[in-house]
Structures are given as structure tokens and as C-alpha cells.
């Protein structure tokens, strides 16, 4: 296929169908075609993490995927987490712990946290820092982000035991 390709996918539970140029990045598709500008774009080569989304249950860099590769996928973006009136627990924890300042990096952190809360034990703060190492924040100094995640991990593990 040289021209546009038809893709079908669900984003935040809603089904979509679109024709995309193969070279369009997944990040640009979400932002420019679907208008979901919560997914940010920083470096476009996989280093900063602000474009992180959840795809089929695991986190992925949307700047390092093509829109055509979303065909058949279930995608979750930061818009799918919560709203200002009804925040997701991860968003609340970030709010409570002042884990953001300018907010540019925040969507990527939130989506990464969605993944690591499911997939990693995160026993120590060092493990939390390691799991967050793919997301860069130029404002907070990370301490408050680690505290927010620590709270979420404690809640998760408390509920499990």
C-alpha cells in the first residue's frame, strides 16, 4: 500500500476509523487527527517520555510508533483517565503531592504510572525512580512525583494484603 491506509482502533473506549498516511506518527494521529492533545510531543526520538500512551495494556512511546501500527489496537491516552471533576486516583495523587508544575511532562508520567502500578513490584523508592527513568521532568526535581507514586503503591499493596 503506497497511499493511505485504513485503520480501526479504539481510543479511551471509543471506536475510530481513519485513513492515514503510513509515515504519520501515532502521536501526531492522536493529536492532529483525533484532537487528543493531552498526549504531548517533546523530543520525537524516544528520550523524554511525554508522548507515552497505553496500548493493549502496556505503555508505549507514541513518537516511536506509526499510526498504521495502531490498527486493531486498544489505546488509552491521558484523556481517558479522568476529568477535572472526576479525577483518576493517579491524577489525585499527583495533585495531592504537588507532583507537577508546568505540566508538560505530566501526561507521560501518568500513563507510565498506569503501566508500572500493574507490572512492577516497586518495593523501594529506588525501584520507583528506575521505573520512572524514561520520563523527564524539567520542573519538579522528581521528589514529589516519587512521593505520589509511593502513595499509590502503598494503596495498591495495602488493598492486596
Amino acid at each position: 500500500m503506497t497511499g493511505k491506509a485504513r485503520i480501526t482502533l479504539t481510543v479511551n473506549g471509543e471506536p475510530f476509523e481513519a485513513d492515514v498516511e503510513p509515515r504519520m506518527l501515532a502521536a501526531d494521529f492522536l493529536r492532529d487527527e483525533l484532537g487528543l492533545t493531552g498526549t504531548h510531543v517533546g523530543c520525537e526520538h524516544g528520550v523524554c517520555g511525554t508522548c507515552t500512551i497505553m496500548m493493549n495494556g502496556v505503555s508505549a512511546r507514541s513518537c516511536l510508533m506509526l499510526a498504521v501500527q495502531l490498527d486493531g489496537a486498544e489505546v488509552q491516552t491521558v484523556e481517558g483517565l479522568g476529568t477535572i471533576r472526576d479525577m483518576h486516583r493517579i491524577q489525585e495523587a499527583f495533585h495531592e503531592h504537588h507532583a507537577l508544575q508546568c505540566g508538560f511532562c505530566t501526561p507521560g508520567f501518568l500513563m507510565t504510572v498506569c503501566d508500572i502500578l500493574e507490572s512492577l513490584p516497586l518495593r523501594t523508592d529506588a525501584e520507583i525512580r528506575d521505573a520512572l527513568s524514561g520520563n523527564i521532568c524539567r520542573c519538579t526535581g522528581y521528589d514529589h512525583i516519587v512521593k505520589a507514586v509511593r502513595t499509590l503503591v502503598d494503596e495498591r499493596d495495602g488493598a492486596a494484603s
Binding site: G46, V58, R61, T112, D115, G134, N135
Partner: peptide, 12 residues
């Protein structure tokens, strides 16, 4: 593998 890139990159 713990030294390869970051969570999201290791997923892909």
C-alpha cells in the same frame, strides 16, 4: 534487561 532503556521502550 534491567539496563535496557526504559519501561515503555522495553515493551516494544
Amino acid at each position: 534487561m534491567g539496563h535496557v532503556a526504559h519501561v515503555a521502550i522495553r515493551n516494544r
